[in-house]
């Protein structure tokens, strides 16, 4: 009886690990797509309604689903409190976001670079930078989607199979 329970436990946990990995793989393109949308909205806010960065960040956070919405809201909130430079705030929050969610280092680098340019230039330049970042993200998005397509299903079944394999070995 205990043996049976242990077998189920091993298979279950390894299947779970595989699922978790597949979920991470599936989440990355979703987040990148959301960041792209956010940047497009930000571009519209900055170029056409000529809002300040704080206002535009707030309005972005209102139009985007949750994990990214809170990121932008937090950044906007931090700007309100004191008058230090924008980049450290941006960096801190992006770092925190990166630690909590399945983004890769390269995605974080792209976002950080964008944060360095934010609020430093006139509108035309700013628009160019936003376009550039969107391009970068587009490239990462296709890469992440391909990876997800390729390894998503595989990691699920490999997790289950490795679990069964170990159980068979220990039997």
């Amino acid at each position: 009886m205990i043996k049976f329970l242990a077998c189920v436990f091993i298979i279950g946990s390894l299947t779970w690990i595989g699922h978790e990995y597949a979920k991470n793989l599936a989440n990355r393109p979703r987040f990148i797509r959301l960041f792209k949308n956010a940047l497009q909205i930000l571009e519209a806010e900055i170029v056409y309604s000529q809002a300040t960065i704080k206002e535009s960040l707030t309005s972005v956070s209102e139009q985007i689903p949750n994990p990214i919405s809170t990121l932008f809201k937090n950044i906007a909130g931090d700007i309100q409190q004191d008058k230090e430079q924008l980049y450290p705030i941006w960096e801190k929050h992006v770092d925190k976001f990166y630690n909590k969610h399945p983004l890769q280092l390269e995605d974080k680098e792209i976002l950080q670079q964008f944060g360095r340019t934010l609020g430093q230039h006139d509108i035309i330049q700013q628009q160019k930078y936003i376009r550039l970042t969107i391009n970068h993200l587009e490239r990462k998005l296709t890469e992440a989607e391909e990876r997800n397509h390729r390894y998503g299903k595989m990691s699920r079944s490999v997790g289950f199979l490795v679990g069964t394999f170990i159980v068979l070995l220990l039997l």
Binding site: R150, Y151, M154, S157, V158, L161, V162, T164, F165, L168, L169, L171
Partner: peptide, 25 residues
């Protein structure tokens, strides 16, 4: 004779992992 079945099971699972990994390149 359960060892026979155990080995057959190992063989089948190894073959499945092999096929999946090969499909994924």
């Amino acid at each position: 004779t359960s060892v026979l079945f155990q080995i057959a099971g190992i063989g089948i699972i190894v073959a499945m992992i092999h096929t999946i990994l090969k499909q994924m390149g």
